[in-house]
């Protein structure tokens, strides 16, 4: 409790003294750094999220560019996952969760009545913190998405999709002889790559990753990080991570969240070498978090 109070105090303090862009009201604050980009894939303006009465995100403005990897960092409970889940409307399935504001994917409002969340989620895929393969065979895991969206008209096409996806996820060599084995028999790192393959099998434009390596060992983590770098050629990737090093290694831009607010955003190299907001600096230098 006291640490939280400390953080809050520090926050208030910093807004009073150091932060050049802060304002006085509790709601109004300004994100440090350039949150908009030239040709955004996703564009968020004034996003507020509530769980029941409790507000989890405050007035978030953030653009996500084409084919970039953007890392979301910040202490636990600051709303990174919540923000991520706004981008493919995963928050819809949480009872009592309410999202306000404007989020556009390629200029189209994703919370508009016309857009079916089912279609949206095929375009904005998601990889979760804990690998969550379905209790089915490896093949059926990857084929699940293409099947429900009718992406393949026959078995050969489906085989092709499964193979390409597994190849892109760097798993093909390891599993091609046992596609009919249960996916739950794979190692943690393999399972996570399978989940990535499953996600890209649907042909998304954006891939959201919520701490995809936090349940993995360093070697599996390195494999996934390399994979993310390769995937950047085709997909826009938003990754939540707890590891500063990981953010520095894989991302081009970094956004720092704190207590539901987007404090600072900018090029990864700039954020890590020259953070402008004292909160960002504290977090990056490891003074808390």
């Amino acid at each position: 409790m006291s640490t939280i109070m400390n953080i809050v105090e520090k926050f208030e303090e910093s807004r009073d003294s150091a932060a050049p862009t802060s304002t006085d009201s509790d709601q109004g604050y300004q994100t440090v750094g350039e949150y908009s980009v030239a040709k955004p894939r996703i564009c968020c303006r004034g996003v507020n999220v509530f769980y029941g009465e409790k507000q989890a995100l405050f007035d978030i403005n953030l653009d996500i560019g084409q084919r970039e990897v953007i890392a979301l960092i910040g202490p636990s409970g600051c709303g990174k996952s919540t923000f991520l889940r706004c981008l493919n409307r995963m928050n819809d399935i949480i009872e009592g969760c309410r999202v306000e504001g404007d989020i556009r994917l390629d200029g189209q409002d994703i919370y508009s009545k016309e857009l079916d969340p089912v279609v949206l989620r095929a375009r904005v895929g998601m990889v979760f913190q804990k690998p969550n393969p379905f209790p089915k065979s490896i093949y059926d895991n990857v084929a699940y998405g293409p099947r429900i969206h009718g992406l393949a008209s026959n078995r050969t096409e489906l085989d092709d999709i499964v193979e390409t996806s597994l190849k892109r996820a760097g798993l093909w060599k390891e599993v091609r002889d046992r596609l009919d084995h249960p996916a739950t028999g794979l190692s943690g790192g393999q399972q996570q790559r399978l989940c990535i393959a499953r996600t890209i099998a649907v042909g998304p434009e954006v891939v959201l990753m919520d701490e995809p390596c936090s349940a993995l060992d360093p070697i599996a983590t390195a494999t996934i990080e390399q994979l993310i770098d390769e995937l950047r050629e085709r997909y826009t990737i938003v990754i939540v991570t707890h590891s500063m090093q990981q953010a520095a290694r894989v991302s081009q831009r970094t956004a720092y969240f704190h207590l539901g607010k987007l404090i600072e955003v900018g090029d990864t190299s700039r954020i890590f070498t020259n953070p402008r907001h004292p909160l960002t600096e504290d977090y990056i230098t490891g003074r808390f978090g």
Partner: peptide, 27 residues
């Protein structure tokens, strides 16, 4: 059936009925 399995299916764009028949019930 863990929540993560359901979210996995929803995350792929499965409808609620598809999630239930395709993932939750088999599990």
């Amino acid at each position: 059936v863990p929540r993560s399995l359901r979210e996995g299916a929803y995350g792929l764009g499965a409808t609620q009925a598809e999630t239930i028949t395709g993932v939750v019930l088999p599990a």
